[in-house]
């Protein structure tokens, strides 16, 4: 009798298995678990793009700044679905744009102390930063930072990339690892 409910729910075991794997994934990923097991991450690039689907081909629905904190909702391959705490907006970010650490943008003495021992904190502007670059430039006035600044201004849009692929007859195989057996499908 006791087995009855389980028999009626054939998917239960699978679900349980999924759940435990999910838990393991959380442990492995190392995302900070705080406040009722909510997971958070921070944007670790200058501009973080939030997309409507887990793909670079997805439309950008929001742009976040360095250090912005997001809530982690779901993971799919290299993509993380996040919600923005304030706006409540929802979308996908590539994992390379995120860190499990909390980024402190204007760190004070207490943050400095904590960072030395904690793995959950990163300080913005720490160490090699714009001040060091300024000093380095002053010492090497023949170095061409003007050119580097111009170089960084070249930005390619997603539309251009999509068109470039299409016009070149290039069909991406997203999320498929390289196979030594060959690429002929």
């Amino acid at each position: 009798m006791a087995d009855e409910p389980q028999k009626n729910k054939p998917g239960m075991l699978e679900k349980l298995k999924e759940k435990s794997l999910e838990g393991m994934d959380k442990v492995k990923s190392g995302y900070a678990v705080v406040e009722d097991k909510l997971l958070y991450a921070s944007v670790q690039v200058r501009t973080g793009q939030v997309r409507i689907i887990p793909s670079f081909l997805g439309q950008v629905v929001a742009k976040l700044s360095y250090g912005d904190r997001v809530r982690v909702r779901e993971k799919k391959g290299n993509w993380t679905r996040v919600t923005l705490p304030e706006a409540g907006a929802d979308g996908w970010m590539h994992k390379s744009a995120l860190t499990k650490k909390k980024i402190v943008l204007d760190p004070g003495a207490a943050d400095v102390q904590e960072e030395a021992t904690s793995k959950e904190l990163a300080l913005a502007g720490k160490g090699f930063n714009e001040h060091v670059e300024g000093e380095f430039k002053a010492r090497h006035q023949d170095f061409d930072y003007f050119m580097i600044d111009r170089l960084e201004e070249i930005v390619v849009s997603q539309e251009q990339i999509t068109r470039f692929l299409k016009e070149g007859g290039i069909t991406p195989k997203e999320d498929k690892p390289f196979s030594p057996e060959g690429g002929v499908q």
Partner: peptide, 28 residues
């Protein structure tokens, strides 16, 4: 006494400033 740090402890922000200086050196 702090734990040993490695290249992995550079934040992307620090990596960025390193990269710019490397690039400027190459352009010299």
């Amino acid at each position: 006494a702090e734990a040993a740090k490695s290249f992995k402890d550079f934040t992307p922000e620090q990596e960025y400033y390193i990269g710019r200086a490397v690039a400027a050196t190459i352009l010299s």
